[in-house]
Simulated scan of single mutants.
Amino acid sequence: MPRLPYLSGVAAATAVVALLAAAPPPSGEVTVSRPRVVAHFDFAQGQTPENIALEPDGSADLTFSAARQIAHVTKQGHTRIRATLPAEANPRTPVVGDDIVLGIARAHDGTLYVTYATGTRKTGVWRVAPGGAPRQIAQLPSNGLPNAIGLDERRGVLYVADSVLGTVWSVPQQGGTPTEWAKDTALDPVPGSEGGFGVGANGLKVHDGAVWVSNSDRGTLLRIPVRRNGSAGPIETRATGLGGIDDFAFTGRGDTVLAAMFLDNELALVRPDGTHTVVLTQEDGLSNPTSVAVRHRTVYVTSGAFFTMRDPNLLLADLGERHDR
């Protein structure tokens, strides 16, 4: 979720969601425990982590949205800047205004793909090869807000969620002309006149033959099947009532998801039946969480602090499973 400082008052007023009954989780339920913040970032320097991609050694590559940077962070919290995208002199990014880097995906060879929104011709998908400089490989509409990005290396396709245009774009992995892969009201933002922030399709993951997308304004988690010919199937709503959902990650247990809830400073466990439970809160160190990643038994959560304006960070936690005795 990009920084929207002028909405902070609205966010504070609307960031109240009733928690589910505090019943003990059933046997076999995914658990999240031992949260610890391993890296604190500098809000004043634009180090607002928006999205995350994991390296084989468990380190993380983060997008610092306001600084237009890609940062590499070890599990011990050591941070270095890998790349900075070129500044746009006169950004006109919808909703946000500034030029910001948002989603990130990693290929098996270490190449990183990021989305960059500027409101100009620089808007689109940029590639950062290992040791190389950022290079634009696809241009997306300047009146859109390309957000999360997912990579299907088997098909050689990048998928991009556009939060303003209510669209999922497909882009050849090697670069080229984008295709409007999926467009539907379910992906659209909610108009401000109806209480929306203007941010629709937001998080995106490629999982088990489908592209999954969150819609922040509508509080939904959507599944879009990928047909054999690569086209999009009918959109399925898999969960509702997730107001302020940003990015998410699968736990490895089928369609169970951990979702970052940026307005309420929470991490939610979303079950395959659509029900959800809060598993981490602001007391654990979350500060407007933006994205989630899972590697083996470790959960990674970035906090952008876009509304709190306090302590953008990277938090790690342990992933487990409840067993009744």
Rank of each mutant, 00 (worst) to 15 (best):
D61V: 12
G209C: 00
L4M: 14
T14P: 00
G119D: 04
V32G: 02
V168I: 04
A232F: 10
I149V: 14
G203R: 05
Q173P: 01
P130K: 04
G219M: 14
T256A: 10
I104P: 03
D324Q: 11
P225W: 00
G110P: 14
R92E: 12
A18P: 03
R68V: 07
G244D: 05
L204N: 03
G46R: 01
A44S: 15
D247P: 07
D184F: 05
L221R: 06
V157C: 00
L7T: 01
D284I: 01
F64N: 11
R82C: 04
G28S: 13
A18D: 12
L187F: 15
T177G: 03
F307I: 13
E50S: 05
A117R: 00
D284Q: 05
T185C: 07
P141L: 12
L20Y: 03
A83I: 00
V213D: 02
L242P: 09
A83P: 00
V32T: 07
V114W: 08
N313H: 04
S170A: 11
S287L: 06
R3F: 05
E236L: 12
V95M: 14
R82H: 02
G233V: 11
T93F: 07
A13P: 00
P312I: 07
F41M: 08
P91V: 13
L269K: 07
L4Y: 08
G200K: 04
T185V: 15
A71I: 10
L222T: 10
G203N: 08
L19R: 14
P91F: 08
L242A: 14
R295E: 10
L314Q: 00
V17H: 07
N313I: 04
N288G: 12
T93N: 14
P86L: 02
Q76K: 08
S8W: 03
R297I: 05
V199A: 01
F248K: 00
N229A: 13
A161H: 09
R310M: 02
